[in-house]
């Protein structure tokens, strides 16, 4: 499947081991998780990991969104976070917001859609791992600016 890397750099070329195999080789820098694997168990190792692959068995199975947010937000993982499986262009904006930065997809036009995805919605309501300021924060700032002008 074609690989698209949002970060712009070269796609990581490590072979990602399954969670079970990787547990036998904790020093290996790439792991592919099933969406039922406990991401919390990666906590002591995230500093060493360079690639984590999360799976969408179907595009409508959204468990990996939570895994991604936990990896980025709670565990502080900074390496490449790749989505694979049912990865469609109409979901990619959500994936970006949850911290994914590379994608395997065989959908036609995926690359162009990925390029557009960050600008599709200029407003967001939730604070997530992409660091974008949600509307509530923008409003608060605006009120403060207005208050200071008064």
């Amino acid at each position: 499947m074609p690989l698209y890397n949002e970060a712009g750099g070269l796609p990581a070329t490590y072979v990602a081991l399954s969670f079970a195999d990787w547990r036998q080789r904790l020093d290996w820098p790439a792991v592919a998780l099933a969406n039922t694997d406990p991401v919390e168990d990666l906590a002591p190792h995230v500093g060493r990991l360079r690639l984590i692959v999360l799976d969408f068995p179907k595009f409508s199975d959204g468990r990996a969104y939570s895994q991604a947010r936990l990896l980025r937000g709670r565990l502080g993982y900074r390496g490449e976070l790749r989505a694979t499986g049912g990865v469609l262009q109409d979901q990619v904006a959500f994936m970006l917001r949850c911290g994914f930065d590379s994608f395997e997809s065989d959908q036609k036009g995926f690359g162009e859609a990925l390029a557009r995805a960050r600008t599709l919605f200029s407003i967001v309501y939730q604070p997530t791992e992409d660091g974008r300021a949600p509307a509530s924060l923008l409003r608060l700032k605006r009120r403060n600016v207005m208050a200071s002008k008064r």
Binding site: D61, G62, Y65, Q91, F121, Y125, Q126, T128, S136
Partner: peptide, 13 residues
């Protein structure tokens, strides 16, 4: 309503 609108994590529950 605002928090749940296009919530990226909870759109494929």
């Amino acid at each position: 309503r605002q928090w749940s609108t296009l919530h990226p994590e909870f759109t494929f529950l």
